[in-house]
């Protein structure tokens, strides 16, 4: 009884173990790794990834996929930055940036759910469109001349914690509660696990999907604003390949590619594994190109391990 629940816990323990082992290895190679400042640094770096991965987790549990998050991140951040340069109050610039992401997600969701086009194709198209929009907003490469308080969101601290970390934690908590404690959350699993059953149970499957893509777009945009606020510029080149990091974090965290399974806690660990990997390799002095190789390898290994664990549990079940 409850074997599958156990398999979730097992999964969490397994990914957590990988994170701890990886940290231990890096700590043994570099004494700068296990310091408070580096820890905060890792977390700050991981924050945009965690934020965007939360939205992606929900979409992927519903058996969807959003490849446009990297471009949405860029477009939303340069949109907010250019509004700030134009003299809009920051909160309005940020809110419009996030709304832009939500709008892109809405369009994704409408096309995917209402016209039944494959999410890969729709969001791949949207990846190009929004990247184009990012360059259209800031033709002159990097946007400078931002107001002084632009960086507050990315650099200030709340109760001793960097604000990006607090924002990521709040977003993660929101999604965790949404998915585990609400009716809507149950429906996400139902839509991803067995769409026909969901439909026959009276669920509005397309509305669920549209809302999920909207949330995913919004989290990607929020991630973009947090990122550009921390970096202090609006850069249309930011976030190229970010969608793959996000998807990797979600999959490493144990969300099934075929939908119906996955948890936010797993995704957070997945995002941390990616962040620690990047940070650790930097500290150890590995060339950036090798970091791509390492990230890809971790993703593939995670999927293989996941498969083995799943098979093991299935066998034990019988």
């Amino acid at each position: 009884m409850g074997m599958l629940k156990n398999s979730h816990n097992l999964q969490t323990v397994a990914t957590l173990t990988v994170l701890v082992l990886m940290s231990a290895v890096f700590a043994s190679f570099s004494d700068r790794f296990f310091t408070v400042s580096n820890f905060q640094n890792v977390m700050r770096n991981a924050a945009p990834l965690i934020i965007a991965s939360c939205g992606m987790t929900a979409v992927m549990i519903a058996r969807g996929l959003d490849l446009s998050v990297g471009s949405v991140l860029a477009a939303a951040s340069v949109l907010a930055a250019s509004l700030a340069v134009a003299g809009f109050p920051l909160y309005i610039a940020f809110a419009l940036g996030v709304s832009f992401g939500a709008f892109v997600g809405l369009v994704n969701g409408l096309i995917i759910a209402k016209i039944s086009v494959s999410p890969i194709i729709v969001t791949l198209g949207m990846l190009n469109i929004t990247r184009g929009i990012a360059y259209l907003i800031t033709p002159s490469a990097i946007l400078v001349g931002l107001p002084g308080n632009w960086s507050d969101l990315g650099t200030s601290k709340v109760i001793g914690l960097p604000l990006p970390i607090v924002i990521a934690a709040l977003v993660a908590m929101f999604f965790h509660v949404l998915m585990s404690q609400t009716t809507f959350g149950k429906r996400i699993y139902a839509v991803g696990g067995n769409e026909e059953a969901a439909r026959l149970s009276g669920l509005n499957v397309s509305r669920t999907l549209i809302l999920l893509y909207l949330l995913c777009g919004a989290t990607a945009a929020l991630a973009g604003i947090v990122l550009s606020s921390r970096v202090g510029v609006g850069d249309p080149n930011v976030g190229i390949g970010f969608e793959l990091q996000v998807i990797a974090a979600v999959i490493i965290g144990g969300t099934s590619l075929s939908g119906g399974e996955g948890r936010i806690i797993g995704t957070i660990i997945g995002a941390l594994i990616i962040a620690v990997l990047g940070n650790g390799l930097n500290l150890v002095g590995v060339e950036p190109f090798w970091q791509w190789v390492a990230q890809g390898t971790v993703l593939i290994v995670a999927i293989i391990v996941d498969r083995q664990v799943q098979d093991g549990v299935n066998r034990a079940n019988k």
């Binding site: 139902a190 991803g192 696990g193 149970s201």
Partner: peptide, 25 residues
Amino acid sequence: LNVVGGLTIAENIVLGSEPTRMGFF
């Protein structure tokens, strides 16, 4: 059979007409 594998038996049975308390499942 149209059951959702990832949900519990209880969640499957109430799917579509879920009981809520203060807005939560």
